[in-house]
Amino acid sequence: MGLKLMIHMKNVTKVYENGAVALNNINVDIRKGEFVFLVGSSGAGKSTFIKMLFREVLPTSGILTVNGRDVIRMANKEVPYLRRSLGVIFQDYRLLPEKTVYENISFAMQVIEAPRRLMQRSVNSVLDIVGLRDKYKCFPHQLSGGEQQRVAIARAIVNNPSIVIADEPTGNLDPETSWGIMDIFQRINAAGTTIVMATHDKTIVDAMQRRVIAIEDGQIVRDEAQGGYGYES
C-alpha cells in the first residue's frame, strides 16, 4: 500500500497517573482512505486510543504521528492546528443548545477564523451531505437523536479534515437511525477521508466488512483488513 500514512503508532504505551496501564505497546498504521473500526469491551483502551489521536491524552512512550505531525513532541500551541486537520464526533453529540443547526456548524469555522465568504457555502454543502438542509434554523432540542448526530458530523467535516474520528457515534441511536449515520460515514470515506470509529455495534461492523482492530486489556488482539466484530455480544 503506497497511500499516505495518516496515523502511525509504534510501541505506544499509555500509563495513567494512578498507575493503570491503558495501552501497552501498540503498533498500528492507518493509511489515507481507510475505514477502521476499533472494537473491544468497555475499558479495553479504545477511548484512550481515540483521545491520543487528537492529543487529549498524551502517550507515555512510543512514537505517534497523526497526519504527519509528531503528536508526542508537539508544542502545546501546535495542538489546535493538529485538531483542525481532524474531525471529532462523540456519542453524546456535544452540540450547543442555544445555537441553531446552522450556527452550531458555522461556529466550528468561526473559531478557527476561517474566511467569512467561505462560510455559507461550506455550511450548506455539509448540510447537504448529512441531509439536513431544510432544518438549518432548528435548535438541537427540536431534532431527533439521529438528526443531532448528523449535525455533529456536519460540524466535524465542515473544515475539511483529513481524518474523521468517531467515538461510539451510534451508541445512543436505534439500529435504523444508526444505518443512516453509517451511510453518511461511507460517503465521507468514499470522498477520500480516513475514518476511525470506535464502536460496540456488532451488526454494523459485521455488515460493513472493513478493517477491524480489536483491543483487549490495552493490547491489539486482532487486526484484520476485512473483518467482523468477532465477539458474541
Binding site: F54, N76, K77, P80, Y81, L82, R83, R84, L86, V88, R94, L96, F107, A108, V111, I112, E113, R155, N159
Partner: peptide, 17 residues
Amino acid sequence: RKEIAIMKYVGATDWFI
C-alpha cells in the same frame, strides 16, 4: 465550559478562546 470544550476540539487556539 461546553462551548470552550467544543472550541478546543475543533482547533481554536487558546488565545482565541
